[in-house]
Simulated assay, not measured.
Amino acid sequence: MAHRFKVREIAQQSGLSEATVDRVLNDRPGVRAATRAEVLHAIEDLDKQRSQLRLNGRRFLLDVVMQTPRRFSDAFRAAVEAELPAFAPAMLRARFHLWESGSTDQMADTLARIKGSHGIVLKAQDEPEVAEAVDRLVAAGVPVVTYTTDIPASARCAYVGIDNHGAGTTAAYLMDQWLGDTPADVLITLSRTVFRGEAEREVGFRTALRRSGRGIVEVGDSDGIDATIERLVIDALERNPDVAAVYSVGGGNTATVAAFDQLGRACRVFIAHDLDADNRRLLREGRISAVLHNDLRADARLAMRLILQQHRALPTEPARPVPIQVITPYNLPA
């Protein structure tokens, strides 16, 4: 049994004799299951206590860098700020670098200007310039965790977020089930295909929906900004009279709903991502059918934990995929 403590420490923690602990650790016969469980529990407690000692009095400054619509960055910022106190007795502070629309060069320049950081949570374009900026940070001892959209060719230490291809497949399954025999084409709205996560969602959706024979119309390069989305969706609807459903990959859903209303068109099924304030309202009003969501506070906690692991302030644990939640008006969390 792998462990990092002396037999005497485990015995003291568990209240068992050193001989009994030794038998458990070496998997010798004649040990009751309950006794084995006590030893395992003692080792877990010692691990937690060691982590607390490593964290005690330490200060970490984290940076959150995101190009994303404000409705999402506001929600994630609130999640990060809510989770910072959970890492006591360490003191964590966060700086936020957030903008809605910009170039790859702007992202690379922002990363290059960051100084004094202990780690970065990053939502950025999957482009060579950004990957190189990430590599320089990591080489300088600053771990980077990508969030919601990955940059796999970079030296980032981990990706936090849902399986984007799986999310697209899930959206296609729901879309086809709910449309049934209705002969409707589907509109996909994206912010930017340079975000790998959006591209993976789109590929998953198209692949899974292909067998249905439905037409798919794409609207992209909107940055998820409402004014741009509304104009692009109106144009797409006017050119494609059979569109009667939406898979929103990149946001701007209030504007998409407004575009359907302006043309007097019905949207039979509308599937979106992320439970931000706009989507909550649209769900309650019955304007969208479902939101594919993940817990932003759990995401923030995991991202920060992975950064602290890189500094050996916490024990190493594997990053597990974030589960997708299908939220409807009837299971909308408080």
Rank of each mutant, 00 (worst) to 15 (best):
A300C: 06
V219A: 05
I324Q: 12
G168D: 06
S117V: 03
D295W: 03
T68R: 07
F270V: 07
L179R: 04
H273V: 14
R305F: 06
V134I: 15
L237M: 03
M175Y: 09
E238D: 15
D45N: 12
V257P: 02
V219E: 06
A139V: 09
L209A: 04
I234N: 13
D135P: 05
G141H: 03
M1G: 13
P333N: 05
G116D: 08
P85A: 04
A158C: 12
D235V: 04
L62T: 12
L282K: 01
A108V: 09
A133W: 02
A11T: 14
A34R: 11
A167R: 09
L314K: 02
L306E: 14
L237T: 06
R312Y: 10
N331P: 02
R54I: 00
A303Q: 03
M107N: 07
D235W: 00
D242P: 00
F76V: 12
G286Q: 11
R214V: 08
G141N: 02
R59V: 07
R201L: 06
T148P: 00
W99L: 05
V138G: 03
R8Y: 11
H273C: 14
V246G: 01
S222Q: 07
D22C: 07
A303H: 02
G264D: 02
R4W: 05
D261I: 00
R297A: 15
A139P: 01
A244T: 05
R320W: 09
A277K: 12
M175A: 02
E200M: 11
A78M: 08
M66K: 03
L308H: 02
H118L: 04
T254D: 15
L283F: 06
N240H: 14
P128C: 04
D242M: 10
R50V: 12
D276W: 04
M91T: 15
D223N: 14
G102P: 02
V291P: 09
Q309G: 10
L53M: 10
L190W: 00
S222C: 14
T148V: 11
A158H: 07
R136K: 15
M91V: 14
E127M: 07
R77M: 12
E38V: 04
G213H: 06
Q325T: 13
A94N: 05
C157W: 00
E127N: 11
Y330F: 14
D226Q: 11
V249T: 07
I114N: 10
R32T: 14
P29W: 09
N279F: 08
Q13T: 14
T170H: 08
P85Y: 03
Q52Y: 04
N56K: 05
I271K: 01
S17F: 05
H97I: 05
Q106G: 13
P323D: 10
I307Q: 02
A277W: 03
A79G: 11
V80C: 13
D221V: 05
P69Q: 12
L98S: 09
T182M: 03
R206A: 14
A34F: 01
A184P: 06
T207I: 00
R70P: 03
